[in-house]
Simulated assay, not measured.
Amino acid sequence: MLRAVENRASVVVCSTCRLSADAREDGEGRRGGAMLADAMRALQADDPAYAAVDVQDMPCLFACQRHCTVHVRGPGKVGYVLGDFPPDADAARAILDYTLRHAASEEGVVRYADWPQGVKGHFIVRTPPEGFICT
């Protein structure tokens, strides 16, 4: 059930997430999460700055009340689950930009003033790093 991945700055994308609150998939049968992961990888191919972030996908993050859900994480850092994104390049860029700032931070805490506009209002939960709790 588990697959080893490199333990570094990453965005785990729910590949089976719905397209939107109202639709499970697009007209070609593609799920929103898979489309969002593809949009992130396309941006990485075009912009080497995003190579510092691994885009990983897995089926179901268990946030099924939401759509296009991602988990931003890094070793020893507070992680964040975000959702309700459209599966497009603008959302992908905002998530990757936030993840770069998260990776550059000491503990995974990015000042609100430094959040890309595209992630504001999309946070669902924060997760403490293994072996720690937040104070």
Rank of each mutant, 00 (worst) to 15 (best):
H67A: 01
L96H: 09
S10Y: 03
V119W: 02
C60K: 10
R66T: 01
D46R: 15
E6C: 07
R8V: 04
V125W: 02
L61D: 04
A21T: 01
Q56G: 01
A4P: 01
R3N: 09
H122K: 06
D97N: 11
G74C: 08
H122Y: 09
N7L: 08
Y50E: 00
L19Q: 04
Y80G: 10
C60R: 13
K77M: 04
F132K: 07
A42V: 15
G108Y: 11
V55C: 10
A49F: 06
E6M: 10
D46T: 15
A42P: 12
D114F: 06
A39V: 09
M58N: 12
A92E: 09
V109H: 15
I124Y: 07
K120E: 12
Q44N: 09
A89M: 03
K77Y: 05
C60D: 02
D84S: 14
S15G: 12
A103F: 04
V53T: 02
C64T: 04
D38L: 05
N7R: 13
R101Y: 12
V70D: 06
P48T: 10
Y50D: 01
Y80M: 12
Q44M: 09
R24G: 12
L19P: 01
L36Y: 07
P128W: 12
L19W: 02
Y80R: 11
V110H: 12
V81E: 01
P86T: 13
T135L: 13
T99K: 06
P86H: 14
L43N: 03
P129A: 03
C14Y: 06
G121R: 08
R8A: 05
M35W: 14
D97M: 00
R93Q: 07
D38H: 13
G32A: 03
V11C: 00
L82E: 03
P48I: 02
Y112S: 12
V72Q: 00
V109L: 15
F123K: 09
R18P: 04
A42L: 15
D54I: 00
H122L: 02
D26W: 14
D84M: 13
R73F: 03
L2Y: 08
R30H: 14
P59S: 15
R41G: 04
Q56D: 12
A39G: 06
A51D: 08
T69V: 14
V78F: 10
G131F: 08
P75V: 08
D57P: 13
